[in-house]
Amino acid sequence: MGFKLLSKLLVYLTASIMAIASPLAFSVDSSGEYPTVSEIPVGEVRLYQIADGVWSHIATQSFDGAVYPSNGLIVRDGDELLLIDTAWGAKNTAALLAEIEKQIGLPVTRAVSTHFHDDRVGGVDVLRAAGVATYASPSTRRLAEVEGNEIPTHSLEGLSSSGDAVRFGPVELFYPGAAHSTDNLIVYVPSASVLYGGCAIYELSRTSAGNVADADLAEWPTSIERIQQHYPEAQFVIPGHGLPGGLDLLKHTTNVVKAHTNRSVVE
């Protein structure tokens, strides 16, 4: 069995187990497998329904001669939608809004960016022009300005110390501490036991640490421990890039980060 097929099978099995364990909360999309990078042309966006009122959005972007996937989250909030992270750029984010209108038909009224990198804030200006209120932590807003990236308009308070959590509509926002970046936030959907790890969490097929220019490698494993301790009931975990899975993604990420750190020390 090929690795790609095995990865998709694991996603399907995880979703099936969740649907059985929580039949009222989960209505997993039966329309197909989780979209992969090879299936999404740059400039297009796919939506994948995880649970009743919960979707991931998947886009792709060219970077350094390669094409990478990027995940975000959409959560229903009454007759409105909360968006977590842009679709990595203005063109993708405009396509995301169009796809949401086509498939869901509810307005996106608020959006949260989970850290300051372009795959999370690139497209904020498109959201703002569409009347979406954009939010991020003060740290993310400051770092985005320093980096020359787009800056969300509103500040999220109460997320300055490791372990801080605040309720934001249908989700809980959690600051686990520094990891992929010093400002990275985690998003949890309690009604569906869905954990969105953003770039602080890796997919299972990833074996290298990737972009760690703004990471705190020493603190990252401790931050992941905080996530595990705060959300032990999480059933569906979405990484910032690639295929979702279960809580095993947290341990896998820790292993990859520690291996990278150990290699760096040896070198």
Rank of each mutant, 00 (worst) to 15 (best):
S7V: 12
L9C: 09
L9Q: 08
L13G: 10
T14D: 13
A15F: 07
I17C: 05
M18A: 05
S22G: 09
S22W: 09
L24E: 08
S27Y: 05
S30Q: 06
S31K: 12
G32P: 05
E33W: 07
P35N: 06
V37P: 07
S38F: 14
P41N: 07
E44A: 11
V45P: 12
V45H: 01
A51C: 09
D52Y: 05
D52A: 09
V54K: 04
S56R: 11
I58P: 03
A59E: 14
A59D: 06
T60P: 05
S62W: 08
F63K: 09
A66Y: 12
Y68G: 11
G72Q: 00
L73S: 02
L73E: 02
V75Q: 02
R76G: 10
G78C: 07
D79H: 15
E80D: 12
L82S: 05
A87F: 00
W88N: 00
T93D: 00
A94F: 12
A94I: 12
L97G: 01
I100M: 14
Q103I: 09
I104P: 00
V108R: 02
V108D: 02
R110C: 04
A111E: 15
H117L: 00
D119Y: 01
R120A: 14
R120Q: 03
G122R: 12
G123A: 03
G123M: 03
D125I: 11
D125R: 12
R128C: 04
A130D: 08
A130T: 06
G131Q: 10
Y135M: 02
A136H: 04
S139G: 11
A144W: 03
E145D: 07
V146M: 11
H154R: 09
H154Y: 05
L156Q: 03
E157K: 07
L159W: 03
S160Q: 14
A165T: 13
A165F: 15
F168H: 03
F168P: 04
P170I: 13
P170L: 05
V171N: 01
F174H: 03
A178D: 06
H180Q: 03
H180R: 02
S181L: 01
D183L: 01
N184M: 01
N184S: 02
S191I: 06
A192E: 07
V194K: 03
L195Y: 01
Y196L: 05
G197M: 01
G197I: 01
G198P: 00
C199N: 00
C199P: 01
C199D: 04
A200L: 10
Y202R: 11
Y202I: 07
S205W: 10
A209W: 13
G210L: 14
V212Y: 08
D214E: 10
A215H: 14
L217E: 07
L217K: 07
E219G: 10
P221C: 13
P221F: 13
S223V: 11
S223D: 02
I224P: 00
E225Y: 06
Q229V: 10
Q229I: 06
F236T: 06
F236S: 06
V237W: 02
I238K: 02
L247Q: 07
L249P: 00
L250S: 01
K251E: 07
K251I: 05
H252R: 03
T254P: 04
T254D: 08
T254R: 10
V257E: 02
A259V: 11
T261S: 13
T261K: 07
R263F: 08
V266P: 08
